[in-house]
């Protein structure tokens, strides 16, 4: 059964050394839970961005919580490059596993289907194949005779995301953001924060059920109002561009980052 817990209790379910999968900005990024996770002093995370990240990954990297990073990109979008990511790659602060967006989806799909790898089109000729020895080019064993890339299954220990609402049974409304379902299917555990818990059953009508991730895939839920702030949550609030720009400027230096992080954690505590 899906448990409904406090935000701190939800964050405490992520243990050092685990692989943690997070979605792209705008899809439903659990920023309040990230603050709670940073409060626990989490270390050694194997972070997997599905398929890219921005502020969330940069905060975790800057705080020294990340041992390895698998992603297709980290960027603050209109606010520019992600400063702690850039500095961390150059100083070798974590093991970098460069990927390409559909390879991350293919890895998750393999885990979803319970198979060890997934073939994927394209990629041949890219230097990614040189820096990802776990990716292989094989002769297709069936069908048309040709080379094809295979990537290993990605089965994260924990998936963490934010959504507008869940019902009391733990069904979560994800709308058209099916990547959140892909994350949950592939992960051993899924933790979700929501703006609110609703009394109606989200599986009651065909209209509503189509955009719902059933509670079967959801281990725990916590309420976190404005839980994606300063990032956007679809149909709820836009990104706080000024705040993200402020972060981009401050995080250019280590000291500036520390000051931002401290204020960010204090702000989240006040909201809670």
């Amino acid at each position: 059964m899906t448990e409904i817990v406090a935000l701190e209790a939800l964050a405490a379910r992520v243990a050092p050394g685990q692989s943690l999968a997070i979605p792209v900005d705008g899809s439903g990024v659990a920023m309040a839970a990230t603050a709670a996770l940073l409060e626990t002093g989490i270390r050694d995370l194997k972070l997997i961005c599905v398929p890219i990240s921005g502020l969330q990954a940069d905060l975790l990297i800057g705080a020294g919580s990340v041992a390895s990073l698998e992603t297709s990109a980290v960027s603050l979008g209109e606010a520019g490059g992600a400063p702690r990511f850039t500095a961390g790659v150059k100083s070798g602060a974590f093991a970098m596993r460069d990927s390409t967006c559909p390879a991350i989806f293919a890895g998750l799909l393999a885990a979803q289907k319970g198979v060890p790898f997934m073939p994927i089109a394209g990629i041949i000729g890219s230097d990614l194949l040189n820096v990802r020895p776990d990716w292989q080019v094989i002769d297709s064993p069936v069908g048309e005779a040709r080379k094809v890339v295979v990537v290993p299954a990605i089965s994260p220990d924990v998936a963490l995301f934010h959504a507008p609402e869940a019902d009391r049974a733990g069904n979560v409304r994800i709308g058209r953001h099916r990547e959140l379902a892909d994350l949950a299917y592939a992960s051993k555990r899924t933790l979700v924060t929501v703006e609110r818990i609703v009394d109606r059953n989200l599986l009651d009508s065909e209209d509503s059920a189509a955009g719902v991730l059933p509670s079967l895939y959801v281990d725990a839920i916590a309420v976190a109002e404005r839980g994606a702030w300063p990032l956007a949550l679809w149909d709820e609030y836009p990104a706080d561009e000024a705040e993200i720009a402020r972060y981009a400027a401050m995080a250019r230096s280590e000291d500036g980052f520390r000051a931002y992080l401290s204020a960010f954690l204090t702000h989240r505590k006040q909201v809670a």
Binding site: I52, A73, S75, A82, C101, P102, S126
Partner: peptide
Amino acid sequence: PTGSVRWPGSFGSAY
């Protein structure tokens, strides 16, 4: 990976 300039990453380009 620790070269002189680092950009965000390959996104979906390789595919």
